[in-house]
């Protein structure tokens, strides 16, 4: 058995709220319980209300929840189908304490080549907080890399699988802003290949809990044949540095 509680783990991909598409417990209580059960020190989190219903209300809920438990780090979200632009809105989110912006492209269904998304990417310049974007189809990482190549903030790809691994590696070599979440990098040596080709500093641990099984993503990193110092960067060092730099 591998024990998560031996490591300092910061989970960059957690959610809470309700999940309307099937019966499953994604409550805040269950998120906290899963963190405790697996020895997770801190979690970047966002209310699913912002993904499914109203991003304004969801953001309020996220801030409120993170105020009551300092292990939770708030991520804002905006729904590009509703967002009509404006640097002011982005600045306000950062001013209020959000440590990054997470998009739910997978749930909301818009393409990346979409004017509101391009506006969001432009609006985040100079704010210093990371952008987290799910990419699960061919070409998405390529386009995102192109759109953010001249920006000054980190971009974390969520949900990258073995089938998108070459696309990420080639893109990340050219675009130093790109990072990748480890959750679905589950092929027999994805983590080793990434560490060798672009370095451990570009990998960020995320689990998707409580919507997904924590140990499935944890064990991918824990069992990888990499140096322990690299493993610690992936499990928390990298995302803590990014968040710290965000202020």
């Amino acid at each position: 058995m591998m024990h998560a509680d031996k490591r300092f783990i910061v989970d960059a991909n957690t959610v809470f709220g309700t999940y309307p598409k099937r019966k499953t417990d994604v409550s805040l209580k269950n998120l906290i319980r899963t963190m405790d059960l697996n020895g997770v020190e801190k979690a970047l989190t966002v209310s699913l209300k912002g993904a499914f219903y109203s991003y304004e209300e969801g953001n309020e809920e996220t801030l409120k929840v993170c105020d009551t438990d300092k292990r939770l780090i708030p991520l804002a979200t905006v729904d590009p189908r509703r967002f009509i632009g404006g640097r002011e809105e982005m600045e306000n989110l950062v001013r209020r304490g959000f440590k990054g912006l997470r998009l739910f492209k997978d749930i909301q269904g818009y393409p990346l080549d979409y004017s509101p998304i391009i506006e969001i990417i432009e609006s985040m310049e100079g704010l210093g907080v990371p952008l987290l974007v799910p990419c699960n189809e061919y070409g998405c990482i390529t386009l995102l890399s192109r759109l953010t190549a001249d920006k000054d903030y980190p971009v974390i790809i969520l949900g990258c699988t073995y089938s998108l691994l070459s696309e990420f590696i080639v893109s990340a070599r050219k675009n130093r802003n790109l990072y990748v979440e480890s959750r679905l990098l589950a092929s027999s040596d994805s983590i080793e290949v990434l560490v060798e080709k672009i370095g451990a500093s570009r990998l960020i641990f995320g689990s998707g809990m409580p919507l997904e099984y924590f140990q499935a993503s944890y064990r991918i990193v824990e069992s990888a044949r990499i140096r322990d110092e690299d493993r610690n960067l992936i499990f928390g060092g990298n995302i803590l540095r990014i968040i710290k730099e965000a202020g």
């Binding site: 589950a186 092929s187 027999s188 099984y213 140990q215 991918i220």
Partner: peptide, 17 residues
């Protein structure tokens, strides 16, 4: 699904269930 996937992934699911 070894070697497309590492066994660690599915073992983790079972142990988390």
């Amino acid at each position: 699904d070894l070697t497309l996937l590492t066994p660690a992934h599915t073992i983790g699911m079972v142990l988390s269930a």
